[in-house]
Amino acid sequence: MSEHKRKEWPLWEVFVRGQHGLSHRHVGSLHAPDAEMAINNARDVYTRRSEGVSLWVVPADAITATSPGDKEPLFEPANDKVYRHPTFYDIPDEIGHM
């Protein structure tokens, strides 16, 4: 196609807040020359069916992720801490919702 190597639009990860009060959730990615255009493109691509009230875009290469090999040391200790989960505690029914 092109004689010289053209610069490709960078990849962005898109996060949508579906409703007020909810967290932003990753919905997919897209290409755009910069952040402002990524926001516009995200609106057009990922909220065509009025799916959101707020958008985040993040350059895909700015995300630092756990590497798959980390899985055990990073996540397994938490499995022991069952006391962090509400169902760990037996609350008598008479107390009502807690």
């Binding site: 053209r6 490709e8 990849l11 997919g28 990615s29 897209l30 290409h31 691509v45 065509r48």
Partner: peptide, 30 residues
């Protein structure tokens, strides 16, 4: 328009495997 969107989602899925969308496009066009 949805079909363009679906192409876009799918190219992005392929990109997670270490190719770029422009590379895939060149493969189609060639």
């Amino acid at each position: 328009q949805d079909e363009a969107g679906h192409g876009l989602y799918l190219y992005c899925a392929a990109e997670t495997l270490g190719v770029t969308r422009d590379q895939l496009t060149e493969q189609l066009l060639s």
